[in-house]
Simulated scan of single mutants.
Amino acid sequence: MSDFNTTNFINPSTFILLGIPGLESSYIWISIPFCTMYIIALVGNFTILFIVKTEKSLHEPMYYFLCMLAVTDLVLTTSNMPKTLSIFWFKSREINFNACLTQMYFIHCFSSLESGILVAMALDRYVAICHPLRHSAILKNPMVAKIGLAVVLRSCILALPYPFLARRWPYCRTNIIPHSYCAHIAVVNLACTDVRLSSYYGLFVLFSVIGVDVISIIVSYTQILRAIFRLPTKDARLKTFGTCGSHLCAISILYVPDFFSSLTQRFASNVPRHFLILFSNVYLLAPPVLHPIIYGMRTKQIRDRLFRLLTQNQN
């Protein structure tokens, strides 16, 4: 592998993913929680999709957006976790140059898509609470489809520059990526040229896309809280606000680690590299694992349907 350190090339045929440098002796132990979380994410999100598909009472905008979120989580976690586990278990570190850029695209595309879906879900909560009598008239199926399509197109288009910019840089020093997957910054930092354009674009997406989404959610919840405080009784306020609990949890587990991960990778030079890589992996795994648990536990219709499925299987 040392031959790769000083090879002269413009675009390498393969990259070498090191995994988590410094923790090689612990790969088996690290892989156990990672594999467990991946299986939970797969089972949980497929269960959400199955329940919504088979339960006609759940064919509503909120649950359509929840299905979009489940599909996004499945693609996002499958984009990186199988390769990461193959590094831990089989030392399968090589990844084709084009496959690396494809992985980069999928990770950024579906991370952005996840954020957009949370905005769509905030819109659904706003209409349901602030305009309850018009909810079914405003969010008809064609409108839900248009919102979903707009979110998907935005994410797909904004993620395109990541691999295109990474492809144009010359890689004449090394093709060894000190990471477990093809993270954007980890790849472009290998280039032997000024890659500030890639870094600036990453910050642009972080602050303009994620920032706009966060502002949109804040505006929605400002209106929601105003409507809740106008309700006549405390019980009515708590019950209405409780319908937003799952969505607020989903927001927290996505945006707080997202900003922390993006900013520390660029500016926290004193943070150990193995911690950053571990955190970035957990960040990609946590939302797909927690979303079905949160919505399964807090949404009565899903909880009841799951309980009926389990009791039927036992009988």
Rank of each mutant, 00 (worst) to 15 (best):
C109F: 13
I129D: 01
S111C: 15
Q103W: 02
G116M: 07
R125T: 04
A128N: 03
F106N: 09
A99H: 12
A99Y: 11
F106K: 02
M104T: 11
A128K: 08
H108C: 15
F110H: 12
F110R: 09
M104S: 11
V119C: 10
R125V: 05
L118W: 06
D124G: 01
A99N: 13
I129K: 00
I129N: 00
M104I: 05
A128R: 04
F110V: 09
G116V: 01
A120Q: 06
D124Q: 06
A120E: 05
T102H: 08
C100P: 06
L113R: 12
M121R: 10
F110W: 14
Q103K: 01
I117M: 02
A128I: 05
C100K: 00
T102G: 14
S111D: 13
S112D: 12
G116P: 07
V119Y: 09
F110N: 11
C109H: 11
R125P: 02
L123G: 07
E114Y: 08
S111I: 13
F110Q: 10
I129Y: 02
F106E: 07
L113K: 11
L113T: 10
A128M: 11
V127H: 00
I129Q: 00
I117C: 03
F106D: 04
Y105H: 12
S115Q: 09
L101A: 03
I107R: 04
I107Q: 05
C109D: 12
I129R: 00
L101F: 01
S111H: 10
D124P: 01
A128W: 05
M104H: 08
C100N: 03
C109R: 09
S111G: 15
S112H: 10
L123E: 06
S111K: 08
G116I: 01
Q103Y: 02
R125L: 09
I107M: 07
I129M: 00
R125A: 07
C100E: 03
R125K: 14
I129G: 00
F110T: 14
S115C: 14
I117K: 04
F110G: 09
I117Y: 07
S115P: 08
C100I: 01
L113A: 12
L118P: 02
F106Y: 11
F110Y: 15
R125C: 10
A99K: 04
I129E: 00
Y126P: 05
S115G: 15
M121G: 02
A99F: 12
S115A: 14
